[in-house]
Design a protein around this nucleic acid. Sequence first.
DNA 1: CGAGCATTTGAGCGAGATCAAACGGAGTGG
DNA 2: CCACTCCGTTTGATCTCGCTCAAATGCTCG
Lengths: 230, 230
Amino acid sequence: MNRRDSERLDTIVLGRIGLEKGDTLYRPGDPVTAIYAIRVGTLKTQVATQDGRVQIVGFHLPGELVGLESLVSPTHLSQAIALEDTRLCRINLGALRALASNLPSLHHNILRLLTSEVQHDHSMLTTLGVMSAEERVISFLLDLSARLAARGFAATEFQLRMTREEIGSYLGLKLETISRLFSRLAEAGLVRIKHRSVKLLDMASLRAMLERATALPPVREQHCRIDRLP
Amino acid sequence: MNRRDSERLDTIVLGRIGLEKGDTLYRPGDPVTAIYAIRVGTLKTQVATQDGRVQIVGFHLPGELVGLESLVSPTHLSQAIALEDTRLCRINLGALRALASNLPSLHHNILRLLTSEVQHDHSMLTTLGVMSAEERVISFLLDLSARLAARGFAATEFQLRMTREEIGSYLGLKLETISRLFSRLAEAGLVRIKHRSVKLLDMASLRAMLERATALPPVREQHCRIDRLP
DNA sequence: CGAGCATTTGAGCGAGATCAAACGGAGTGG
DNA sequence: CCACTCCGTTTGATCTCGCTCAAATGCTCG
């Protein structure tokens, strides 16, 4: 999105919202009237099952958007909750739609954001589907690090804004498992984790432990009829 | 999408493709030139890790679209493979974009399809994150049943087009576990499964075993201050 | 009819869950 | 300012569900 588009985008910002830690931005069933850009703070989005089990489907950092997946739904299907005191821009959906229909690049960007959401979800499905607990935790730390770095924050030293239980919910593990694995990684000299403050000491080794598992692979041989990958 | 739009859509169909069982439609790294509508047959889409572990992220039935998540990406990030002999319509992406910019309802529909993809992925994340193996298998059978019914096929009696191993990859389980659970559900009189042919005998009980786990909506308390400015 | 692959079933194992207890830090009220 | 309390975190002991390894059976398709 170029500067001019950004300026026109500013015209559809409805207002600013402040949330305190624990506040809900929206919940399942709420009518969808806006999407949100995070100025300061962190949110989680989660879906819940009838019996109270919760799956956290995303953590959202400053500079990222929230609520995009509800773009065309009449009501929200997930719940967004602030992990700390947070300030957001509220972006009017109707105005956004109107503007987008006159601004192909905006439309294209919305599509791009949505598809990258899908691709992130696919990588999370891979994480939950095939990775060991240790790999999931490393993958979580590296993902957080990369996203913070992309926003201009330090890549190797940061504060966790979520509890062990929330990390566990996100990764399909229990809080004790998260705690144990943090301890084990620290023992191995790969990280230093005290409470919520994290320092990644050996990014290379952490990445190496994932290379076994991560990465959307390069091209494979040309013929059809590959029904099993090596 | 109404009838007139559908007719205009027909004008951008590039051609028809036939795939044999096991053929790859596209693979990671391929340039994205089209999306596909399934006329007859079934596909799986999967992402692979460097070391060869595979996560199946979707099964795609007749009448559904494939490749939508690559809409704005220059190259594919996943691989699509036919599970049986399959015929598809190839939809030219450039033409689709051009048509969409003159046809707001088409644009809206594309967004709707993408967001429902996101929501399906969120429900899969919940499945992988919090459900037991038995719940996952039931959820898989009911999802398949519902999607087949939505396309006019029988809801309680159908053929599986995928192996136990593929079901396992989709659900984050091993093939032996799938087989054992099929046997157990059959023993309990809830289903009849012989090889690839499935008959759901007691949908009510199956749903009940999931209700514990599924469904999104209960509202929680907690206030949201939408009008407090930073 | 035979070969190869998918499926079923059994036995034993292990990663992660569960149960339990102690510790520590942040916020609150005296 | 300190003590108390609450909650998040750490760590240990044990258990269990789903995995691994193994072998037999049965389709499917050439």
